[in-house]
């Protein structure tokens, strides 16, 4: 993805999945925020301004 914004938010109810995703993305130079609560995502998104939000249904 050609962008200067290297921030990403991941939402999943499983902590393990979150930590694995974080690891992989951090290795690629992404700044990652993870949440298990959808409300928090909504609260944080305007301040963090991620390039991408990755949500589990």
């Amino acid at each position: 993805m050609e962008t200067d914004n290297k921030r990403i938010i991941i939402f999943d109810d499983d902590e393990d999945i979150l930590s694995i995703c974080t690891y992989i993305l951090q290795e690629q130079g992404w700044e990652v925020l993870t949440y298990t609560d959808a409300n928090e995502v909504v609260e944080r998104v305007s301040a963090f301004l991620p390039a991408l939000i990755f949500m589990d249904n």
Binding site: D14, D16, I17, I20, Y23, I24
Partner: peptide, 12 residues
């Protein structure tokens, strides 16, 4: 979910 995690972690 934990099984997927174990697989991924092992691969990494």
């Amino acid at each position: 979910t934990p099984l997927t995690s174990i697989g991924l972690l092992a691969e990494m």
